[in-house]
Computed example of a mutant assay.
Amino acid sequence: MSAAPIDSLQIGMHWFNERPGGLDRMFQALVDTLPAQGVNVRGMVAGSADVVKASGGRVQSFAGAQAQLGARLLASRRHSRVLRAARMPDIVATHFALYAAPTAGVFRSVPKVVHFHGPWAAESYPGGGGGLSRALRVALERFVYRGATRHIVLSRAFGRLLHETYGVSEDSIRIVPGCVDVAHFDTGLTRFEARRQLGLAADRPLIFCMRRLVSRMGLEDLIDAMAIVKALLPDVLLTIAGKGPLAAQLQARIAARGLEGNVTLAGFVPDETVPLWYRAADLSVVPTVSLEGFGLTTIESLAAGTPVLVTPVGGLPEAVAPLSQGLVLPSGGFRAIGEGMADALLGRLKLPDEHACRTYARENFDRPVVAAQVARIYREAIDVF
C-alpha cells in the first residue's frame, strides 16, 4: 500500500535555466521528480516572472536575482507567508541558507529538512579571508542548519563538514547523492558521430572538462598537466567549458605554456549540447582542489558513456570509486593529473567501457532513483518531528 502524499515547500536559490549551477540543477531535478514519489511540490526562488511557467506552475519567484540583498530577504519572508496562508506544507525543504533564514518562524510547526549542497561561506571566499562577512555567513548557515530535523548531504565528506563546521548532530545527517537525467545524456550517438556534430576532429585524442572558471576547480593544474600529455600525445586536445572570473588568466596560462593548439576555452556551453561534448570525448576530468561535495559533472560524463578521472578531493572518490578505483587519481597537482590522463589515453590505465559507465549512472544516480531516497527522508522527518 502506497504512502499518503505529502506537501513540500522547497526554498531554492535560482531556477536552473536562468542561473545554471549545481545547486540549481539539483533543485530543479527534485521539483520535477518528487511528485512521482508522492511528494507534492511548491517552491520559491530568486528569479524572473518566467519561473512559474518554466517550472510547470510549481515554483514562484519571490524577487529578482539581481535585486538588492535587503529587498530579496524581505521578499523571501513576505512570500513565505503568502504560501503559508494558501496552504501549510507538511514539510519545508531548504536548499540555500540565505533565502531560508528570513522564513524563520513562519513554518514553526512544520518539520524542516536541509539539503546541504555546500558551505556557502567557504565557497564565497575559497582562498580564505572574508573577515566579518564570512563569519556572518557561517553564523547564518549555522542558524538555518540547526533548526532542521534532518539534513541531506551529497557525500560522507560533506556530512563530516556539516558536523564539524556547523555543529549538526551526526544522527540527523543522511547521505543522498546528486542526480542527473541519464536519458538526457545518453545521446545514442557514437563518439565519432558526436564529434561530427560538434565539428571536432575525428582522429585526435579529446579530453573534456566542464567547470566554473574559479580557483578551487583546479583548472590551473589541469592546464599545466597538459604539457605532460602533449609530450606523449602531441595532437591531444582539451576543451574546458564554462564561464568565470579566471577566463583571462587561464587563457594567458595556456599561451605561456605553448598549449594554444592543445587547450581550448569554449566558454558557456548550452545545456542541450553538453551531452554531445561528453560523448565526443575519450575522457573527461574533474581536477578540483577543494570544496567538492559530489561533482555532478562526474555523473553527467558517465551517463554519456565517457569515463571520468577525478582528484581525491571531497566527495569525488565516493561518486566514482564504486565503478572503478582507477577513476580516482592518486593525488591532486598537475603531475598526477597529467600522468593519469596520459595513461588513460594510451591504454595503460584500464577504464570502464561506455556500457559500464551508463549502467552505473542509471542504477545509482538517475533522477527517479535519487528522488525516491529524498522522499523517504522527508517522511522520516515528518514521523520523528
Rank of each mutant, 00 (worst) to 15 (best):
M1F: 11
S2V: 15
L9N: 08
I11V: 13
N17W: 13
G21E: 06
G22F: 01
L23T: 04
R25M: 12
R25V: 10
R25D: 14
A29Y: 07
A29P: 05
L30N: 03
D32E: 06
L34D: 00
L34V: 10
A36G: 03
A36K: 06
Q37H: 03
G38A: 08
G38C: 11
N40M: 06
N40A: 02
V41S: 07
G47R: 00
G47S: 01
V51H: 02
V52A: 13
R58V: 15
Q68N: 05
G70N: 11
R78H: 12
S80I: 09
S80D: 14
R81Y: 13
V82P: 11
R84Y: 14
A85L: 08
R87T: 04
P89M: 15
A93N: 15
H95L: 10
A101M: 11
V106P: 08
K112M: 12
P119L: 10
S124H: 04
Y125R: 04
Y125V: 05
A135K: 13
A135V: 15
V138N: 10
A139H: 07
E141N: 09
R142P: 06
Y145S: 05
R146H: 15
S155E: 02
R156I: 05
A157R: 00
A157I: 11
A157T: 14
F158L: 11
L161D: 08
L162T: 11
H163R: 15
T165Y: 02
Y166M: 09
V168Y: 06
S169G: 11
E170A: 13
I173D: 12
P177V: 07
D181L: 05
D181N: 09
H184K: 09
F185R: 00
L189S: 07
L189D: 02
L189C: 07
A194N: 14
Q197S: 08
A201H: 08
A202K: 13
L206S: 01
S215Q: 06
G218A: 09
L219Y: 05
E220H: 11
I223M: 14
L233M: 13
L233R: 14
L237M: 03
T239G: 07
K243R: 14
G244S: 13
R253V: 13
A256W: 04
L259G: 02
G261S: 15
N262V: 00
V263L: 09
L265P: 03
L265R: 02
G267S: 10
G267L: 06
F268K: 08
V269R: 09
V274T: 15
V274E: 04
P275E: 14
D282K: 11
L283T: 00
G293A: 12
F294R: 02
L296I: 05
T298L: 07
S301N: 08
A303D: 02
V310G: 04
T311E: 08
G315K: 01
L316E: 00
E318N: 02
V320S: 01
A321D: 02
S324M: 05
G326D: 10
V328I: 15
L329C: 07
L329N: 06
P330Q: 12
P330H: 02
S331L: 08
F334Q: 13
R335I: 04
I337W: 00
D343Q: 05
L346F: 04
G347Q: 07
G347H: 00
G347D: 06
L351H: 00
A361T: 07
A371V: 12
R379V: 11
A381S: 10
I382D: 09
F385A: 12
F385R: 07
